[in-house]
Design a protein around this nucleic acid. Structure first.
Length: 465
DNA sequence: ATGTCC
């Protein structure tokens, strides 16, 4: 019997697992399909009559003890702030909807906001005692890392081939990208017991190992560029440096964790209206909530290790020493105190910007990114944008972007593009400097990074191995 | 974002 049959027979989504187990047991015990079907129908109508049944008793008790879920939204929506004047209206609607959730406490919309599943990208949401998998995002712990190297800046021109080779030989890109055999990277994060403690993560460790030190597709990248520091900071003298910047996350492992728990959250909240289904939450007091929290935090450490291996291998190939290091998650949730209250702050495509905290806000392959220092603005839930933000969908980009024009413009800026999809062309993004101007209350600019040698996943090609 | 839904 399939899930859909069970639902048609009146089994609520949240008890599908228990129902499937009971049906399987009944069939193993020799009951015929039609007979089981009749039992399930009767049980869904009058569960009290089945409490003592050896096979269906447990399911009957579950049905009796589950109050009929009813949708109750906040009487008044949670307060939220937005930054920027020309924000996508659909993204605004998504954040407004999120603020209607009974678990919502406060929201904020960053100037790079655009539509995503559930919460918009560039959306921040604080909740009480609840975690929303889709408000963290599919790429859990998607993250930036910048290392300043002791390699002289003129190497970007003078030793270009050597820099290109370091990226090409030490990184992998694309959906399913991985290292094979002895090329696999090792990191102590893989030795954690946490992997085997989670019912989902225990199946993901080998894939995670194979993908350690890789970037995915879409907006992930690894690039060399110049970092301009106008005054001493980051433990460095003022000056222009050669830096390595990467954008990647928790890869396939994180996507599987996200998919599993967002589905579970939706099943646990069948009462949610359609526009809020993707914002289904897990109660932090529940086993599912705790499982997701542990898995999410593991994905956080894994994504950090992922970047660490990219930077370690590339700088090692160059024989370079790391002079400074800045990094941050921008798809994650944190337990924080806001307004003297403990809340779970989800930042989905948003950079943590508590007072004094360093972060990285990238532009595009052809425009600057910025190292920033947070100002701790309460209205933004101590957050800032995570980039420039898309102005054009991937589909539209593929129809309209003139690739040879892009190449010409890159050449004029002395930018070497090793590979990328047309949907990542500079024009699909907002003007990063305009976005930075919309968030002067949120962050101060520390340094400016200009991309010079850029690698992204090639479009439409099979993954490398 | 991800080897394309459990």
């Amino acid at each position: 019997m399939k899930s859909r049959d069970l639902i048609n027979l009146g089994i609520p989504k949240e008890h599908l697992k228990a129902a499937i187990a009971a049906v399987t047991n009944a069939r193993r015990g020799g009951a015929k399909a039609a007979e089981v079907r009749r039992t399930v129908r009767s049980l869904s109508i009058a569960p009290h009559e089945f409490v003592a049944d050896p096979t269906f008793g447990e399911l009957a008790t579950l049905l009796i003890n589950t109050p009929v879920a009813t949708w109750r939204e906040r009487e008044t929506p949670a307060p939220w702030a937005k930054y920027g004047d020309d924000l996508d209206e659909s993204a605004i609607r998504q954040l407004e909807n999120a603020c209607r959730l009974p678990v919502a406490v406060q929201g904020a919309l960053m100037p790079d906001a655009h539509v995503g599943y559930g919460l918009p990208i560039g959306g921040v949401l604080a909740t009480e005692n609840a975690i929303i998998p889709y408000a963290v995002g599919v790429d859990i712990a998607c993250r930036m890392k910048l290392t300043v190297l002791d390699t002289p800046v003129h190497a970007i021109k003078g030793e270009k081939e050597r820099l290109i080779k370091a990226i090409e030989s030490e990184t992998r890109f694309g959906m399913g990208a991985q290292f094979r055999g002895r090329d696999r990277r090792d990191h102590e994060v893989l030795e954690e017991d946490t992997w085997s403690e989670g019912p989902v993560t225990k199946r993901l460790k080998d894939k995670a190992w194979a993908q350690l030190g890789t970037s995915g597709s879409g907006n992930h990248f690894v690039e060399f560029g110049t970092l301009e520091l106008n005054s001493p900071d980051l433990g460095l003298e003022a000056g222009t440096y050669l830096a390595l910047l990467s954008h990647s996350g928790s890869r396939g492992a994180g996507a599987t964790v996200a998919g599993h728990y967002s589905k579970l959250a939706r099943e646990l909240h069948p009462e949610l209206p359609k526009e809020l289904q993707h914002l289904a939450w897990l109660d932090m007091d529940s086993e599912a909530g705790q499982e997701y929290w542990e898995a999410m935090n593991l994905m956080g450490r894994y994504a950090a290790a992922n970047h660490e291996m990219i930077h370690r291998m590339v700088s090692k190939a160059l024989g370079a020493k790391v002079l400074a290091d800045v990094e941050n998650h921008h798809n994650f949730a944190w337990k924080e105190i806001h307004d003297s209250k403990e809340v779970y702050v989800h930042r989905k495509g948003a950079t943590p910007a508590d007072e004094g905290v360093l972060g990285i806000i990238p532009g595009s392959m052809a425009t600057p990114g910025y190292v920033v220092r947070g100002r701790g603005a309460a209205e933004s839930l101590k957050s800032a944008s995570h980039g420039a933000g898309r102005v054009m969908s991937r589909t539209k980009a593929k129809e309209t972007v003139n690739w040879s024009k892009v190449k010409k413009s890159l050449a004029e800026k002395d930018i070497t593009l090793l590979s990328a999809g047309v949907d990542e062309a500079p024009d699909v993004y907002k003007d990063i400097d305009e976005v930075m101007r919309a968030q002067t209350d949120l962050v101060d600019i520390v340094a400016k990074f200009s991309p010079k040698i850029v690698k992204m996943a090639p479009a439409g090609e099979p993954p490398e191995d």
